[in-house]
Design a protein around this nucleic acid. Sequence first.
RNA 1: GGUUCCGUAGCUCAGUUGGAUAGAGCAACAGAUUUCUAAUCUGUGGGUCACAGGUUCGAAUCCUGUCGGGAUCACCA
Length: 591
Amino acid sequence: MNIEKIIQNHIAAALKAEFNVEENNISLQPTKKDFEGSYTFVVFPYVKALRKSPVELGNAIGNYLVANSGVVSAFNVVQGFLNLSIADSAWVDLFTGIFKDKTFGQLPDKNEVVMVEYSSPNTNKPLHLGHLRNNFLGFSVAQILSANGYKVIKTNLVNDRGIHICKSMLAYQKFGNGETPESSGLKGDHLVGKYYVEFDKRYKVEIKALEEQGLSEDDAKKQAPLLIEAQEMLLKWENNDSETIALWEKMNEWVFAGFKLTYEKMGVSFDKTYRESNTYLLGKKIVEEGLKSGVFFQKEDNSVWIDLTDEGLDQKLVLRKDGTSVYITQDLGTAELKYNDFKMSKSIYVVGNEQDYHFEVLFKIIKKIGRPYGDGTFHLSYGMVDLPSGKMKSREGTVVDADDLMQEMIDTARERTIELGKTEGFSQVEADELYDTLAMGALKYFLLKVDPKKRMLFNPEESIDFQGHTGPFIQYTHARICSILRKAHEQGMIGKTTDYPVLQESEQEVIYLLSQYPQILADAGRDLSPALISQYVYDLVKAYNRFYNEVNIFNEPDKNAQQFRVAFSGVVGETIQKAMSLLGIKVPSRM
RNA sequence: GGUUCCGUAGCUCAGUUGGAUAGAGCAACAGAUUUCUAAUCUGUGGGUCACAGGUUCGAAUCCUGUCGGGAUCACCA
C-alpha cells in the first residue's frame, strides 16, 4: 500500500481518537523544500472547530502518527503545517511494490471506446507549425487515453473538398503550365500549396482593381472574377464534372503522397482516415431529414438554416442557396459516419481554439437532431502557435513549414552531436537514427510541454534548445541510465531491493515521484493534457540527475546498496521511457 | 460592440484546483569532470503574480470592477 494512503488513514484515525472528528477526505501535500519532511498535513481547517492552537493539533496528530502509522519516523510543526518525515524502510517498501509491479504505468481496462480525431489537414496546402502542435497533441492524447485503459481509435478527417480546394485547382489550371512534382522537384503538397498562394495573390489584385472602379470592399470581394470561377468550379465538382474531378484527383494524389512523408517524419499514425468528399453527401441527407422534421428551415433563396437563438446563438447556415454544402454540413455527415463505424462513447476533436464557435454550434445541432452520440462529443481546443510577428497565414505565405522545420531540427541535432563528439561507435545508420530521435524529441517536447489550452510563441530566430527543460535533456538521462544498466549487466548485477539501509534525500524524492506516476497519468487522461506528463517526467529526471551526481553506484562498497541502486535506476529508466512514449517521443539508449 | 480565452522574472513557461519565504529553463555571473556520459550538477542576481476592491485563519488561484492582449461573431474551412 502506498505511503500516502497509510498516512491519510492514520490521520483520520488520529482525528477520531484524539478529537472525535469524522473526516474521510484527508488532503496531503508534498513538503516544501525548505522544511524538514516529505509530506505535509495542513491543520488550519480544524483549528476553529476544535478550539485548539495549530501547534497543539499538529503535535497531537504527529505523535499519534509516529506511534501508530509505522511509516512516519519524525515530525515538526511550523505554524499550522504538520511536516512528516518518512522512514527509509517505508520508502524502500514503496519502491519494491513499484519494482515488482509489471503493469506499473498501465491503468486498468475501462472497456470503453474513445475516438480521437486530429490532424485534419486541408488538401490545398502543406502542413505548418500549427499542424505540428495539433498532430503531436492528438497523437499524445491518444497514447495517454490508451494508457488510461481506453480503447482508442485515432482518426484523421481530410478536408479534400470545398471552395478553398477549388481555389488551388483553379490557379493550377490557369497558371500551372502542366507543372508536376516530378518536373518541379517540389513535394506534392508544397506544389499544390504554391498555387493556393498564387490564387490569393491574383485574387487580391482583382479586388484592388474593382475597388478602384468604385466598388465597395465587400462587393469587390464577391465579384472578383477568380472567385466566381472558383465557385463555378465547386458547383461543377459537386455535379461530378469529369474534367474537374480528374484534376481534383490528380492534385489530391500529389498532396496525399506529400502528407504521407510528413506523417512518417512526425511519427504519427491513424486507424482510419475519413475524407470529407465521402461524408458531405451524408451531411446533406441529414440536413434534408432535419428540414422535414422541422429542426432546420429554408429561406426564400433556398438556403437552409438552423435557428439556435434559443441556445443563445444565432441562426446558422447549413446549406447554401446553390445547394452546395458548407463546413458544418460535412461535419454532421462525418460525425454520423464515425459513430456508425465505431459506436464510441466519447469523441474528441483536436482542433484549434479559433473554431470554438463552430464546435459549439456543431454539438448543439447534433443534440437537436437527437443523435445518440450527442453527449459524447468534446472539442479539445488548443491555442495557436504565434510567431513574433503575429499569427501565421497560409494564404499569405507567412508560415513556418512543418517539413522545413523538422529538417532544420535534424540538422541542428547532427551539428550538436558531432560538436560534442558523441558519435563514436555509431554506424552511419545509427547516427542518423539518433539525430532523428533527438530532433523530434526536442521539437515534440517543446510543443507539448505547454498547456494545450494556451497559445504559445515560437521564435524562428532562436532555435529550439537541446539543453535545460527540453526533450534531449530527458533523453540524455535515459541514455545515462542505460549505460549504468549495461555496466551492471556486465558485472552480473540484476538489481534487488533487499536490506537497503540509508537513502539519499534525492532517492526519497525520486521514489516519491515514481509513486505519483499513476495519479499523474490519470490526471492527464482526465484533462487531456500531455503537458502534465511533460512536467512530470522533467521533475523525475531532475531529481534523478541530482542523485546521479551525488552517488556513484559502482564505487559503493555496500553490495546491497549497489543492487538497490541498479534496480532503482532501472525503474526510473523504464518510467522515463513510458512517459516519453505517451508524448510520442523515443528515447535512445546511447547518445 | 456581443461571446470567449488570457495577463506570473529580461525571454519561454510551471504553479498539484485556497496553503508556508511564488518555482523551472534560457540569457548573465561564479563554481564542480583522475569518477556510472558535463546535452549534467551546485550556487548568485533577477517578482507590486496587469491594476483596484471583496470573500477568510490564509488568495497568483475564488467573486466584482478597471486596463491591456488574442480568438470568434462568413453562403472560408
